[in-house]
């Protein structure tokens, strides 16, 4: 009798092992089948290939701004005046929600390049056109929920949590930048 019950227990252990390993293999199989079906919704190769944009800034006069499209989003490029540069550099970081110096954000102080998407809930702020409302700090103003950005695109007042994003870009020559 003891021998019998022992062998029965052994069989039960074997059976549990088989069941658990079968379910584990089935789970791995199901996950590997599910992955391609999920991953196909990620950006495709051709979408990723369009991920950089070149902009010629030679015709952009002081005080003017242009908006270009990069990855389907607006990118603001503004040629700042000396006064605007001065204001952006001299302001105290203490009063900012997201303290960053102008130098950290603008490699070439004449041209500021920003992703034109409010960090609050994704609206496009005003301030690119000459007639636009530019907010209390003279930079950009988001009409959706009233966020005010300064000449460096930093959040100064309103609900947005962080400064306007600076995309990765570099100067290919004095007047041409490549975003992305």
């Amino acid at each position: 009798m003891p021998k019998n019950s022992k062998s029965k227990n052994n069989n039960e252990g074997k059976r549990d092992f088989l069941i658990i390993s079968t379910y584990a293999m089935a789970g791995i199989g199901a996950a590997s089948v599910a992955w391609p079906l999920i991953d196909q919704m990620n950006p495709a190769a051709d979408t990723l290939a369009l991920a950089s944009t070149e902009v010629d800034l030679s015709s952009l006069e002081e005080g003017q701004a242009i908006t270009v499209t990069w990855r389907g989003k607006p990118v603001f490029v503004r040629h700042r005046t000396p006064e605007e540069i001065k204001l952006a550099k001299e302001v105290s970081l203490d009063e900012m929600r997201h303290p960053e110096t102008d130098e950290e954000r603008v490699p070439n102080e004449k041209f500021i390049v920003l992703v034109g998407v409010c960090t609050h809930l994704g609206c496009v702020p005003l301030g690119q056109k000459s007639g636009d409302v530019k907010g209390q700090y003279g930079g950009w103003f988001c009409p959706c929920h009233g966020s005010h950005y300064d000449h460096s695109g930093r959040i100064r007042k309103g609900p947005a949590p962080t400064n306007l994003e600076v995309p990765s870009y570099k100067f290919l020559s004095d007047n041409i930048i490549k975003i992305g």
Binding site: P36, Q40, A44, A45
Partner: peptide
Amino acid sequence: ERIMRDVNHGWLI
């Protein structure tokens, strides 16, 4: 053709 070449795992699907 884009599904076959560019979409992730598109050829498989």
